[in-house]
Design a protein around this nucleic acid. Structure first.
Length: 484
RNA sequence: GGCCUCAUCGUCUAAUGGUUAGGACAACGGGUUUUCAAUCCGUUAACCGGAGUUCGACUCUCCGUGAGGUCACCA
């Protein structure tokens, strides 16, 4: 698959290290990644750390770990390097200066010696007059040469309407009021995002810029800079925002957006997470919903990205995760479940735990649900004899003597049964099922199940017997009989 | 406020002028399970409103309405 110009596709994910990554950030990375994988392109990870005040230490590592968890490997970037190394903007300051000088030389940039107070005043005035504030209307008459201590501003060359194409939103346009003399280099020497990303995208050969739709409004500014630089702009694909679960507000850190690594902690599968994220605002058009990452790469199309923002739906994520868990081999699943049990300080004979795994699997949609199961004591009776409630033991209040009689029959049947009949639920069932059917399943099976679990809700008695084993089963039934 | 964008079941979406508007999640009901879970079957549920264009509009145009974005020495 190649694009129209037959040139290699280069995309980038360029987060700023201001904290953790949430679902919205990661989806942007995923789409860019899917598109490059599909087209055999290059996926660049670039860290936009030009705002030293908002930077949160550890974020760079956190971002990388998040991407690695999901398998979104980058071809160039931190830890790997590449032809444009380094990939940290704070280490590329000379480059931005070089480009800034180009703009100055071409008459496209000037020193802004206006005081912040003055700007503030002008801005207020514009607001009072209900018209947009445009710095270009107040350009200083004789700006001093730029010495790096004052901000450097872009000088909009031609004020006009802009029309451009976006791979998601289609044809877009903006009026001249969106064009203004914005700051290229701040007074602290760092470039603004508006400038740095353009320089880097040019230098790194980026052919497609994917980013949130909040950048649509400032695209004319960028186009104008590309024009001044005499460089063709890349293609654009803006992504709609993801809305918070249950609301219509843009997902953001302040409205409870979760760190993507939280999902790892809760035991979601990376492949399910990818599947879920991919379908949040995109779908390939068929009825198929469960996709492996490889399959997604094959069918991914930018043109099918939705234009409106999708709401996060964690219930659907749970469903999807379960579907992907079902796709795992039983061995893999058991290993995960047993590890999770162990991390909850549950230890028992390995063979016993393996028997227990399928039952646990039925009740969870992610590994972390096991924590809750353990915490609520739902698994207690597998490991310790339960307390018996004599009322519970008799079927819906029927005669305790009858319950006792049935239990005694079950006990003697099981005790006299051959050991190898305890190797499957089906075999155990064959021992007792006919009797239960004859006498009334409820009357027989209810007290039996309660005798084994002590609860009114549990798996069926045959499964319980299989898990507990012959000896423990007999011992529990005996105890229950004494209670009656 | 200026500018820009978006709009199908509760949610995620399919439909590219002609369908009984389809699927999935959720919800609800039922079968199977002694019970829970799982599973199977089924039900409820949507084209934001109004004008046009057209033989025919969810699909095209315009006007409303609603929602979102953006107007920083943040990205």
């Amino acid at each position: 698959m190649q694009n129209i110009n037959d040139k290699k596709i280069v995309t980038r994910f360029a987060p700023s290290p201001t904290g953790f990554m949430h679902v919205g950030n990661v989806r942007a990375a995923l789409y860019a990644w899917l598109w490059t994988k599909k087209n055999n392109g290059t996926f660049i990870l670039r860290i936009e750390d030009t705002d030293k005040e908002r930077e949160v230490s550890g974020s760079v590592e956190h971002i990388q770990e998040s991407l690695k968890w999901l398998g979104l490997n980058w071809d160039e970037g931190p830890g790997i390097g590449g032809p444009s190394a380094t990939y940290l903007q704070s280490e590329r300051l000379d480059l931005y200066k070089k480009y800034a000088q180009k703009l100055i030389d071409g008459g496209f940039a000037y020193t802004d010696n206006t005081s912040e107070e003055q700007i503030e005043e002008l801005r207020k005035k514009a607001e009072e007059e209900k018209r947009p504030f445009l710095f270009r209307e107040f350009r200083p008459q004789n700006p001093p040469p730029w010495d790096g201590t004052m901000p450097l501003r872009f000088k909009v060359p031609t004020v006009k309407d802009y029309h451009w194409h976006d791979m998601v939103f289609g044809d877009l346009s903006a009026g001249p009021e969106m064009l203004d003399d914005f700051i290229l280099i701040k007074s602290d020497g760092y470039p603004t995002y508006n400038f740095a990303h353009i320089v880097d995208d040019i230098e790194m050969g980026v052919t497609l810029v994917m980013r949130g739709q909040e950048y649509i409004a400032s695209t004319p500014k960028y186009l104008s800079v590309y024009g001044a630089l005499g460089v063709n702009p890349p293609e654009y694909a803006c992504l709609p925002h993801i809305m918070a679960d249950g609301g219509k507000k843009k997902l953001g850190k302040r409205d409870g957006a979760k760190d993507i690594l939280e999902y790892r902690k809760e035991g979601y599968l990376p492949v399910a997470m990818i599947n879920f994220l991919a379908f949040l605002g995109w779908n390939p058009g068929g009825d198929k919903e469960i996709f492996t990452t490889e399959e997604l790469i094959k069918v991914f199309e930018i043109s099918k990205i939705q234009k409106s923002g999708a709401q996060l739906n964690s219930t659907k994520l749970d469903w999807l995760n379960k579907e992907h868990m079902k796709l795992m081999s039983e061995n893999e699943r058991n290993t995960e479940i047993i590890n999770r049990l162990k991390s909850n300080s549950i230890s028992a004979d390995e063979r016993f735990l393996v028997k227990l795994c399928p039952v646990i699997f039925d009740h969870i949609s992610k590994w972390g649900d096991i924590d809750a199961l353990v915490g609520a004591g739902e698994l207690e009776y597998y490991f310790h004899s339960p307390e018996y409630n004599a009322e519970l033991l008799s079927w819906k209040g029927s005669d305790k003597k009858i319950a006792k009689m049935h239990l005694e029959f079950c006990l003697s049947t099981l005790e006299s049964a051959d050991d190898n009949l305890f190797t499957s639920t089906e075999k155990i069932k064959s021992l007792l099922f006919d009797y239960a059917t004859e006498k009334g399943r409820g009357e027989v099976l209810w007290p039996l199940r309660v005798a084994l679990s002590g609860k009114d809700k549990s798996p069926d008695p045959f499964t319980l017997i299989y898990i507990l084993g012959k000896e423990e089963t007999a011992s529990r039934i005996q105890t229950a009989i004494k209670k009656l």
